[in-house]
Simulated scan of single mutants.
Amino acid sequence: MINIQFSASETAWATYQDTIVAACAAHDLEIDLRQDHAAENVDYIIYAPTSDLQDFAPYTRCKAVLSLWAGVERIVGNSTLTMPLCRMVDPGLTAGMVEWVAGHVLRYHLDLDRSLQTQDLWAPKIPPLAQQRQVSILGLGALGTACATALAALGFSVTGWSRSAKHVEGITSQHGEAGLKSALQNAEILVLLLPDTGATQNILNADRLALLPQGARIINPGRGTLIDDAALLDSLNSGHIAHATLDVFRQEPLPQEHPYWAHPHVTVTPHIAAETRPITASDMLALNIARSESGQPLLHEVDRQLGY
């Protein structure tokens, strides 16, 4: 019997209890899933960073902590968490992110905001074909790669940037500081899909915003900390950046007094770009437990030094 501790909200427990049991059964795992196991008896912890569990030291038998969230910045620095930590890479979440990003890239590409406005004059403006539109994606993890591949399949000229060299079929891959500069200079539409780490905070600052082409558009479904908010507002006010669509923020919910709400060139969405889907996420959790129990490496294990 494999003892699994579920450490997340009561709402999450009601959502995930049955799907985790069913997924584990499908992987031939005999489990005892509870919220109240004695710490010394726990084999795995299914976890959300908002859980009351913050001291992992008593869980001496635990083989891995499996996060329900894609982001692990709230927990990765916990000194008591010495066992492997795995972030959630959920096929359902990935599909949702691809759809959201593709939708907003197409919205900008086709200039739908302008088309939907009431016009006093008949003034047709024909957009270029996708192959003539330069899109850059910062971050080539699972989500960034999936979005880059989907946009390339639609015909867009896609550049992807990552911290270290990566190859993704059908896109131009860049890495390092020189690669970042090139990715920004070519980006008519810029998509941010980086994790929140010390190296990525304020990666889109005033200097880097200035590298973007005049009239560039920005889409951020990644992390709120990736953007220097004051610098972005300055760039929007000057007209250098034409528009920004922002789904994530340093403080959520975004305070009602924040200037983003009233800015005519900002679209705010309430952290809806992608959400973990219980059925597909539960299958990923069960798969990782099955792999661990059979001696295989865990999937999506977090590198503590990199922070993701």
Rank of each mutant, 00 (worst) to 15 (best):
L306A: 15
T159E: 13
H240R: 15
G307I: 00
R163E: 10
P195Q: 11
G160V: 06
D303M: 01
D207H: 13
W261I: 12
L121W: 08
H37L: 08
G71W: 07
T159I: 13
L236E: 12
L66E: 04
S79Y: 00
V302M: 02
T172D: 10
A183R: 07
I289Q: 02
Y16R: 00
V101A: 10
A165Q: 14
S282K: 01
A262E: 10
V101G: 09
W69T: 13
A123W: 09
L287R: 10
S294G: 01
P84H: 02
A244F: 14
V191M: 04
R217G: 10
Q119Y: 10
A8I: 01
G224P: 06
Q305C: 00
R291H: 05
A146F: 02
N186M: 12
L33I: 02
Q117C: 06
Y308D: 00
G170V: 10
R163G: 04
C86K: 05
I218R: 11
G170K: 03
I241P: 11
D90W: 03
S67K: 04
Y308S: 04
L180T: 08
H167A: 11
A206S: 15
A150G: 11
C86V: 02
V248C: 08
V266M: 09
A187P: 12
M83Q: 15
K63N: 02
R217F: 15
G71A: 15
W122C: 10
L33F: 08
W13V: 01
R304L: 07
G295L: 01
P128K: 14
L212R: 12
V105C: 15
L184S: 03
G141P: 05
R217Q: 15
L121H: 12
L190Q: 14
Y47K: 00
A210D: 06
I279R: 07
P128M: 11
V158N: 05
L33R: 01
A142G: 07
G179A: 11
A206N: 10
L143A: 05
R223N: 04
W261M: 14
G103T: 11
L151D: 14
D247F: 06
T245K: 13
C86T: 09
R223S: 05
V248I: 12
Q5T: 01
I241E: 11
E275Y: 13
T50H: 14
H27G: 00
L226R: 09
I189R: 03
R163Q: 10
Q119C: 06
L116A: 13
I219A: 13
G198M: 05
L121T: 12
K63P: 00
R277K: 09
H300K: 01
S162M: 13
L212K: 01
G179V: 04
G222C: 09
R133C: 15
R114K: 03
G224V: 07
L285R: 06
C24R: 04
N186S: 15
F56G: 00
T94P: 03
V168N: 13
T118R: 14
V21Q: 00
A102E: 13
D196A: 12
I45G: 06
D229E: 15
P91N: 05
L299D: 05
R163W: 07
L204N: 13
I2R: 01
D196R: 02
D196Q: 09
A178C: 03
L236V: 12
I126S: 07
E188H: 04
